[in-house]
């Protein structure tokens, strides 16, 4: 199955939801703003529920499930590298020290992005089957 009318309706619901939620956020101080936010978030939830239901009706895709643990590890490394850099540049007083923690942070992130996550992706690839 491919694009369908119900997918189109799901997109309408999503767009209506995000618009109402943003309007709610912009005018949150008023009662109408709070109501709009609730309506918007409900529409967003409904759109995702619709998308989930339609997904189940579609045929199989050319991918296998990627290992969850590896994916989470890759993301943790990627984010962890950034956090190392953030703390490091504030703690290190010398510019050379800041440079060093930046490079360490980037290296850790790259291990996650270029090493672990592609490995997770390859393990779930259909061409290996």
């Amino acid at each position: 199955m491919a694009a369908t009318k119900s997918q189109g309706r799901t997109l309408v619901l999503f767009m209506g939801g995000i618009t109402a939620a943003c309007a709610g956020g912009a005018f949150f101080g008023s009662g109408a703003g709070k109501a709009a936010l609730i309506v918007g978030l409900s529409m967003l939830v409904a759109s995702f529920a619709g998308g989930f239901k339609q997904k189940a009706l579609e045929g199989p895709t050319a991918e296998k499930k990627q290992p969850l643990g590896l994916k989470l590890l890759g993301l943790a490394l990627s984010l962890g590298g950034w956090l190392i850099m953030l703390v490091g540049v504030n703690v290190a007083s010398a510019t050379g020290g800041k440079l060093a923690v930046c490079l360490v942070g980037i290296a850790v992130s790259l291990v996650g992005v270029m090493g672990v996550l592609p490995k997770a992706s390859v393990q779930g690839a259909i061409w290996k089957a």
Binding site: F48, Q54, K55, E58, P60, T61, W82, V113
Partner: peptide, 26 residues
């Protein structure tokens, strides 16, 4: 690399679970 990539990956991963990112093989 650490924040933007990760955020983007997580958002698209959640969308993959909820709606599916890829069209059917057919």
């Amino acid at each position: 690399i650490g924040f933007v990539f990760t955020t983007s990956f997580v958002i698209n991963w959640v969308l993959d679970i909820l709606m599916g990112q890829r069209t059917s093989a057919e």
